[in-house]
Design a protein around this nucleic acid. Structure first.
Length: 202
DNA sequence: CGAATGATCGGCT
DNA sequence: GCCGATCATTCGA
């Protein structure tokens, strides 16, 4: 297994990075509690040219300024007042590209995740959704701006040492993007085919 | 300073 | 499967 490097995140192609993140393992470790999960669903947000992005048309506020930092940074923001959305910042400093992690398949620390979610039995309700996976893994806005090369939160590639092999990738229009115009129909939501852990599987 | 908005979740039918 | 609560952030006055 190997931790993904700064070079991986700082490449120019956010769509390529979104696809390559599928099948990698997102890990967090807070207060000695290690949790991890395989990324099975991502969404690409291509900065200033993307109407669905917070950084559309070069918008830069206190909240979104994290997206302008260099690739390999965590960007967490609060949606609907209560949901913590975890994003990976990509590309170089000044280019506000990001990948939203929409769902993961639980791997390590499942008991901790159950406890954080206040659940008793494991199911796709544990981590299948951008808001709840953050809750399960202990991610919240205080993580925003942390480097993914650090020791609290990172992403690693375990090659085939995970219960997910030879998967296929399907792409579809992004969730929750309802604007008119061509950007709304870009198939920039990527998920592992036939996974029961993606958010759209009921 | 007030109002509108949203990359959603969970409970109920 | 559908419906609506919920609140930080943003933008206009």
């Amino acid at each position: 297994m190997s931790k993904l490097s700064a070079d991986f995140y700082q490449r120019d192609d956010v769509l390529l990075i979104s696809r390559e993140l599928l099948g990698t393992v997102l890990c967090t470790q807070f207060s000695g509690n290690l949790t991890s999960g395989i990324i099975v669903e991502t969404e690409a947000y291509a900065g200033v040219t993307d109407k669905a992005s917070h950084a559309y048309a070069g918008k830069c506020t206190k909240r979104t300024e994290i997206m302008y930092t260099k690739g390999g940074t965590a960007y967490v923001y609060l949606c609907y007042g209560i949901h913590h959305m975890f994003n990976v910042v990509t590309n170089v400093e000044g280019v506000p590209h990001a990948v939203l992690i929409r769902s993961v398949q639980p791997l390590d620390g499942i008991d901790i995740m159950l406890q954080r979610r206040n659940l008793k039995n494991i199911s796709n309700r544990l981590t299948a959704g951008p808001g709840i996976l953050s809750q399960a893994m202990g991610i919240s806005v205080h993580i925003s701006g942390q480097s993914l090369l650090d020791k609290q939160i990172w992403i690693e590639n375990r090659e085939n040492n995970i219960p997910l092999k030879d998967f296929k990738i399907i792409s579809s229009p992004r969730v929750g993007v309802k604007y008119d115009g061509k950007d709304a129909n870009n198939p920039w939501c990527f998920q592992v085919k036939n996974s029961s852990w993606v958010s759209s599987a009921s």
